[in-house]
Design a protein around this nucleic acid. Sequence first.
DNA 1: ACTGTCAACGCGGTAA
DNA 2: TTACCGCGTTGACAGT
Length: 241
Amino acid sequence: MEVYDDRDDVQETALSLRLNYDGGSSHLSTGDHPRPQAATPVEPSLTLVLPSMACSVSGVVGRMPSSHSVISSISGGRPSKVKRENDGRISDEEEDGAARKKLRLTKEQSALLEDKFKEHATLNPKQKQALARQLNLRPRQVEVWFQNRRARTKLKKTEVECEFLRKCCETLREENRRLLQEIQELKSLDLQAPRYMHPPGGAAAGTFQTCPSCKNRDEGGSPAVAPKTRFFNPFAHSAAY
DNA sequence: ACTGTCAACGCGGTAA
DNA sequence: TTACCGCGTTGACAGT
């Protein structure tokens, strides 16, 4: 397969790096996925869309221009180590002795992948094959792109949640500060004012005076304060064993 | 030189 | 066993 780089400044470098990135046959089996197709394709069940991360490229979505039709951009760089995986299969890095170069997807490829990702965050084998054909990439590359894209989505979501929690924390801290201050103020008032108590039976006891509202109640008036609330005890409502 | 991004890898877990 | 996924990591590369 032909290789090029969409960045103008390095195009000549890329052209000198024509690697056989053919999607078909493949001795280029990568990672842990040089496997036959699954017998039962699984329909995607999840749809995740993060508009902020969607890359929109005007115009060219859906079909690659013919000039780009067999192209993935691979930029030049120093050779990396040739690695062999634990099952003996050869990774992408080993290609006629040439090291794997950093692949950069073209804008068109990225845009189409993003579009497909918006439709569904996972691909069944059929969709993967079709997309790979359409993009002139290997199915494995499409698969990896989707995996990384899901990871990015998750990371973004986590960041958003983290930010939300941070704001919640800040709000609660502020509320706490306010309540503490209120307590302080009430305490200082309490030191100046006479002390009242709410006697259980209505009778005044000890050294405390009965507060006006309790006095009112004891004298037959309607209580100024709400009756004592009963706290919900989750264990009290548990089913009998 | 440093840092962020991202394609790709390696491994463990899981479902069929 | 196979195919796939999530997760952590690596390394190339671009931008500063």
